[in-house]
Design a protein around this nucleic acid. Structure first.
Lengths: 290, 290
DNA sequence: AAAAATATCAGATTAAAGTCAGGTAAATTT
DNA sequence: AAATTTACCTGACTTTAATCTGATATTTTT
């Protein structure tokens, strides 16, 4: 009925309207939106002035004035950077933290007001995650994390829930040869987590034992990030990490129902081999020489 | 992992960033955003100045200046309204139409640029429809349309596709006692369509034959609008319309697999009766005295 | 018919954001 | 060591949006 473009523009209009309302509530704290944006950027942990400037797209003169204003209010302090004294670093004062918290509260209240009046919140949130992740696809960042990072645990919980739904039985991780966290930490292995604007959207690990053999584990991509080529990117990066760790042969196992995964492995140069473990959920086994 | 509020705010950020880029492209046409917004509102068919003013939330002085500017550019003409000469009415000139088309092109290109780089477009668009509809829930408008309106055909096509998926067989509308369009037109009946910012999200009809008996047909709510109470609203409105047409008894049929629908009818005071037609897809029959 | 309300317009003013042209100190390059 | 570049600052200026006041024409109410 509507063109795809129009459907997209409907979203723009709906979100823009809400954002306008939210911005209005921000004004209630007696600061201009520009100053509030800078303050909140600092509150998000962005300290480097040049970084904030790039993030918000501000002219250096304008930025400078915002910083002076916030300083005069006693909300931030700025200092020359340690490694480069030209780059200045901004930090919140006690009072600044309170003020950021107040803005957070306003933004969260605005969000809650919308979410709470809808009966099927989880479905809505999943749609929101998908849309936000696809629209912000350029800013998905893959980085090394500890295998016991709480975000990793969260990814795994989602993974198990999905697997259970696909297998139509309970999924017992203990029966899937659970890897020792230490084998996914340097120097044995590496754990990679993909994050899209704060939301964990995928992970993968290489598990090693220091003998040149490695295994790919914990491969997962959130439904919100599927179709973006993230799985391929994670696999490529983890292979690089494995190579750098001195691993020459990688293996992995997978279930027959995870068809997309199997196709990916085949496309990326893996070859099927015989069963090499007693994981009861695994039906296909692959190997790749690095 | 992330709070619900944070997940919502991720969407805000992603959309706002894109909107900013789009707005930049609008500026390329040498007009301020304010003036462009007014022009595009007129291009959308909003003619009444007071209406545009309310829609865009503009002060009368500011609005007046935008209109003068657009008039000076030769893009619009304004006249006193016919029924009330205080309210002015704006219309596009030939040149204005071209300019609106140019803005449309820019906006559509921006939307396409985002959509086209994603491989699972239809899933994304469905998520977009859901999010935009829920966020813009207040602006769903229900109005009478002709049963042969193309938007109605589109709703029905979606309905049939869904039904086919639920029944796991092909669905042949010809076997479902298809109603005569004329019986869903005044004075026999009424057809209602629910539209959310341009997107048809639901419909319902009362089919009558002028004898005080009526039948509810074409009841459908888009997946994008479920959970908003739209079905209930449509049913309530169509009952009112039926009453106003002089109908004293309403009937309807439904399939056993449409559980939510059946529960709705029961909650709204319908009582189950014996089969009254030979619709092969119908398994439950209801009646309501008005 | 008079009074009140409504819709727009025009001019003056303010506020916020953004731009531009130097200037300084620190870092980097030559 | 000199020249260049970088990051930030300051002050002057422009643009855009927004607000406020008062005027006019029209409609509605009394």
């Amino acid at each position: 009925m509507l063109s795809n473009e129009s459907r997209f523009r409907r979203l723009n209009r709906a979100v823009t309207t809400l954002t306008g309302v939210m911005d209005q509530s921000f004004l209630g704290r007696g600061r201009t939106l520009g100053a509030a944006r800078v303050l909140n950027a600092i509150g998000q942990g962005r300290e480097d002035v040049a970084d904030i400037r790039a993030y918000l797209g501000l002219d250096s003169g304008l930025m400078s004035r915002f910083l002076r204003g916030l300083e005069d209010e006693g909300l931030i302090v700025t200092q020359p950077g340690k490694t480069d004294a030209r780059r200045r670093v901004a930090q919140l004062t006690e009072q600044g933290r309170d003020e950021v918290a107040a803005y957070e509260e306003l933004a969260n209240n605005g969000a809650r007001a919308v979410l709470n009046q809808y009966s099927q919140q989880e479905a809505l949130l999943q749609a929101i995650d998908l849309v936000a992740t696809v629209l912000g696809r350029e800013q998905i960042a893959i980085s090394e994390v500890d295998p016991e990072d709480p975000r990793v645990k969260n990814c795994m919980a989602q993974y198990y829930a999905e697997i259970a739904a696909i297998f139509e039985t309970d999924f017992d991780p203990a029966q899937a040869s659970p890897p020792d966290a230490n084998d996914m930490r340097r120097p044995n292995g590496v754990f990679l987590l993909a994050v899209s604007d704060g939301l964990p959207v995928g992970c993968v690990a290489v598990k090693g034992e220091g003998n040149g053999l490695g295994e790919i584990r914990r491969m997962w991509v959130s439904p919100a990030a599927r179709g973006l080529g993230l799985a391929k990117q994670l696999m490529a990066e983890i292979e690089d990490k494995a190579r750098a760790l001195g691993i020459h042969t990688l293996r992995l196992d997978t279930n027959g129902k995870l068809i997309a995964a199997r196709r990916l492995y085949e496309n990326m140069g893996w070859s099927e081999i015989d069963r090499y473990n007693d994981n009861v959920y695994a039906e296909h086994f692959f190997e790749k020489k690095l």
